[in-house]
Write a protein that binds this DNA or RNA. Structure first.
Length: 866
RNA sequence: GCCCGGAUGGUGAAAUUGGUAGACACAAGGGACUUAAAAUCCCUCGACUGGAAACGGUUGUGCCGGUUCGACUCCGGCUCCGGGCACCA
């Protein structure tokens, strides 16, 4: 055994051993309990960042821990390989997206392997492989057959200069990111997946997922947004020229008598009708085209509107209500029209105040009245008033009565609605899975026959920023109609990359299966036992995956209802954002590694200077590590400098996994120091070649050794609980450090002590092995020559070591800590109270006062109330 | 704007079911070893305060209020920060 800890050599040896022994190859073994541990696969952006290290280390710790517990573990890895960044890179570097992607995969695979992850690499695949995306296409066609996929129009961001569709990310302050041109909304035909058909099940089965974080389930519930309300029809006032009735949905039918106008989207037929011969209105509608498409922008943009001059009739009072066009009403949501009740809706209140529209309160708090005029909308539930026959009712009674009245006169009906919208999957982009459809002049939209799948994506095209290059590639789009054989045109849109990531975890179970999307092996491995990934995927990816797997289930391809039994959402790894603005207003970002931090005498940060020129930079706060903001940290430097074990240990020790982590590498030294100390402990124990270790004489230990052994077995219990149940790897590591500190204080040359040290070191190595597997692999060889760490089971605590005679209780007076007492483990209440009262520090505080009450918390404390 | 989280020493954090706030580390300061440095080891380390010292006291978990014998933890109201908002992944 070498005297010093040399991670490079140790890690190389361990990784080589794992590879040559195919240690992590997962094989289906009937009857053996399986554990499918999956970390979200990476997008091959170029190199790993700290978020990846965090994600994959967590997965690896859990995988190795379960393996030691006797599970048949599957931990696979792959690549979410389609997507926008490859096209941007292609434009920038003149390299086809395919090549850029494959190069990145090759580099990042090496990086992952250097972390020593217990992955079955034989199952690796990338979603851009035709063997994979062929089944996207195949399933899409099945969904089309079942009516779960359909075609309709959707809104996109249109860059009028580049003549191309932009992703939301590519729209900056309403302008195209490359051209700076004002972006327009445009309606184009697209394909949608009917996720709303599964809305109820997606909602209901969340309740069957106790292994999911509450916050994620809450977010999904709110996202699906099931609401009970009423569809209300406002008939046209034909005398005003209004061409049609307007239907709106409301969850607040109790406020119907307070409706004072109706607003429609700028794209609504009534708006277009009103704009004919009204240039002012037409201009407003035109301006709305440049309005926001994103919900965040939509909700914060200035609310603007115009009166159409048209009227509808109130469905209950027949009062004439003006019809307005408003930029905050979207055609894509519901019916493209809303009823406005300014007195009881904040947005309507703001709008009505701005345009001097009528505000009519009809709801008041149960125990008081409203002060008129209102200073703000009263949005709480309350009692109706000023509502004719519907006055004086509480919320539900009012909704029921008004809904009944509407149903009676045929102008409304109760409806359940969802906030969830169908999933638009068409992308006007090159680097994605082709949608397998053909457009024939004679036959219309014709699916590509199954035996012609996959529709292969050419890998040699070079996008130039002006739209999807597939449109300009006849060898791709020219084809003949599968039905009539005449020349036809292939669909050039590709699928949303969320399709790729919606079922990759199923495909890992069927490596090599070329005849079908899945096979029987799925039934062994799935569902995933533990899924680990960033909290940023709490809604979209996880909801789409749940949906897609339910569709597969209904097609008989899989048997489970939910794909991920347990979910661990790791917090984001943040780093500082530093920048300067050039004279022309362009923003240049600086990597925090290139800055010198200035602190005050207390060590608090007050600013930062760019090392290159010594001048200050501006702070952009904290944000997730990203290429675009130049605040990523490449783990490679740390791995090269300290080794993978130190990087893994530090990452796990830094904070609990679900917590957002502000990146700082201070502490790496400490993690490295700990491993060096561990190495030294084993070396010092092994090296003297003293007497061989005797069987431990556990009943013959003195008080010091007995107490140390108690702590050892307490630590075994604690670490198992932290890794397996709590997933708090930081406290597991802290517990081992604490025990190591205690062990280090033992200076006892007796054989009994030496036995205990040996037992301790073995257990420490086993406990740490899921976190720092390389060093543990090497140390185990020294402690138990001829055996392999990988074959060892997770240690069990010795119950006899955990028996205690006495325990310490805390004594409080009026809830304040005043002292401790030592009591026998089986001491009775009276005995404990007597000891507590008699203890010196207590006497001081109790003397001369009357004891009112004593609170005893068994095993914890005594509180004396005076 | 809406939905979901978070805030504890100079720093990362711990306190698992309402029961000792700051475990375990980092940084810093002091010391030992060394020709020196690195490495290693030892000590101090929330704030204020009494004491020569031993050892105490008060206060303290983003802010304001509440419940309780007892609150980082529960309740009500805020502030700031992070994630998501349907075409970044």
């Amino acid at each position: 055994m070498q005297e010093k800890y040399h991670p490079q050599q140790i890690e190389q040896d361990a990784q080589q051993y794992w590879q040559t022994s195919a240690a992590f190859k997962a094989v289906e073994i009937a009857g053996k309990p399986k554990y499918y541990c999956l970390s979200m696969f990476p997008y091959p952006s170029g190199k790993l960042h700290m978020g990846h290290v965090r994600n994959y280390t967590i997965g690896d710790v859990l995988s190795r821990y379960r393996r030691m517990q006797g599970y048949n573990v599957l931990q696979p890895m792959g690549w979410d390989a389609f997507g926008l960044p490859a096209e941007n890179a292609a434009i920038q570097n003149n390299v086809p997206p395919a090549q850029w992607t494959y190069d990145n995969i090759a580099y990042m695979r090496k990086q992952l392997q250097s972390l020593g992850l217990a992955i079955d690499w034989s199952r690796e695949f990338a979603t851009c492989s035709p063997d994979y995306y062929r089944w996207n296409q195949w399933l899409f066609l099945r969904m089309l057959e079942k009516g779960l996929a359909y075609r309709t129009t959707g809104t996109v961001n249109w860059d009028p200069v580049d003549q191309t569709v932009l992703a939301n990310e590519q729209v900056i302050d309403g302008c195209g990111w490359r051209t700076g041109a004002l972006v327009e909304k445009r309606e184009i035909p697209m394909y949608y997946m009917k996720i709303t058909a599964y809305a109820d099940e997606l909602l209901e089965t969340l309740a069957t997922l106790p292994g999911w974080p509450e916050r994620v389930k809450t977010m999904q519930v709110n996202w699906i947004g099931k609401s009970f309300g009423v569809d209300v029809v406002f008939p046209a006032d034909t005398r005003s020229g209004m061409p049609q009735a307007l239907k709106v949905f409301t969850t607040r039918a109790d406020t119907l008598l307070g409706a004072t106008y109706v607003a429609v989207a700028a794209e609504h037929p009534v708006a277009l009708y009103a704009a004919r011969g009204n240039p002012e209105l037409a201009e407003f509608i035109e301006a709305c085209k440049h309005g926001a498409t994103m919900e965040a922008e939509l909700a914060t943009q200035e609310k603007k509107g115009m009166n159409t001059g048209l009227f509808v009739l109130h469905p209950l009072t027949e009062a004439r209500l003006p019809v307005w066009i408003a930029n905050y009403v979207l055609m894509g949501y519901g019916e493209g029209a809303v009823m406005a009740v300014p007195a009881h809706d904040e947005r309507d209140f703001e709008f009505a105040t701005k345009y001097s529209l009528r505000i009519k309160p009809v709801i008041k708090p149960g125990d008081s009245t409203l002060e008129v005029p209102l200073a703000q909308a009263y949005i709480e539930h309350g009692i109706t008033f000023d509502s004719g026959e519907f006055s004086g009712l509480e919320f539900q009674a009012a909704v029921d009565a008004i809904a009944a009245a509407l149903e009676q006169n045929g102008l409304g009906e109760r409806r359940v609605r969802y906030r969830l919208r169908d999933w638009g999957i068409s992308r006007q982009r090159y680097w994605g899975c082709p949608i397998p459809l053909i457009y024939c002049g004679a036959c219309g939209v014709v699916p590509v026959p199954d035996d012609q799948l996959p529709v292969m994506l050419p890998e040699d095209l070079l996008p130039d920023g002006s739209g999807n290059p597939l449109i300009k590639t006849p060898s791709f789009y020219e084809c003949s109609c599968p039905q009539c054989g005449k020349p036809a045109r292939r669909e050039t849109d590709t699928m949303d990359t969320f399709v790729d990531s919606s079922w990759y975890y199923i495909r890992y179970a069927c490596t090599g299966q070329d005849e079908a999307m899945t096979d029987a092996r799925v039934n062994y491995w799935l569902p995933v036992d533990q899924y680990i990934g960033g909290i940023e995927h709490a809604i979209l990816h996880l909801l789409y995956s749940r949906f897609w797997s339910k569709v597969m289930r209904d097609l008989g391809l899989v048997r489970f209802d939910e794909p991920f039994a347990n979910l661990l959402t790791q917090g984001m790894v943040l780093n500082e954002i530093a920048f300067r603005k050039t004279e022309t207003g362009r923003i240049i970002y600086f990597n925090p590694a290139d800055l010198d931090i200035q602190t005050d005498e207390q060590g608090r940060r007050i600013g930062a200077l760019l090392r290159a020129d010594g001048q200050p930079v501006e702070s952009g706060g904290l944000g997730t590590m990203s290429k675009s903001r130049n605040n990523g940290v490449d783990p490679q430097r740390l791995v090269d400098q300290y080794g993978a074990d130190t990087a893994r240990l530090f990452m796990m020790f830094a904070s609990p996994p679900e917590q957002t982590l502000e990146w700082a590498d201070t502490g790496m030294d400490g993690a490295f120091r700990f491993l060096k100390r561990l190495w030294k402990y084993v070396y010092d124990h092994i090296h003297p070649q003293l007497a061989a270790v005797d069987p431990v004489l556990r009943n013959d230990l003195g008080a010091e050794l007995k107490s140390l052994r108690f702590q050892l077995h307490q630590t075994i219990v604690k670490v198992g609980d932290d890794l397996g149940r709590r997933h708090t790897f930081n406290t597991a590591i802290a517990a081992v450090m604490e025990f190591m500190n205690a062990l280090g204080k033992l200076h006892d040359p007796s054989p009994a002590a030496r036995n205990l040290i040996h037992e301790s070191l073995e257990k420490i190595v086993l406990l740490l092995s899921p976190i720092v597997p390389h060093i543990c692999h090497a140390l185990w060889k020294e402690l138990r020559p001829g055996t392999e760490l990988l074959d060892q089971s997770w240690p069990q605590a010795d119950r006899t070591a955990l028996v205690q005679d006495e325990i310490e209780l805390v004594v409080q007076v009026n809830g304040k800590l005043r002292g401790q007492i030592l009591v026998a483990i089986d001491a009775q209440r009276e005995e404990i109270e007597r000891l507590a009262l008699e203890s010196d520090p207590v006497q001081k505080f109790v003397a001369g006062k009357t004891v009112k009450k004593m609170v005893l918390v068994p095993g914890r404390l005594v509180n004396i109330v005076v």
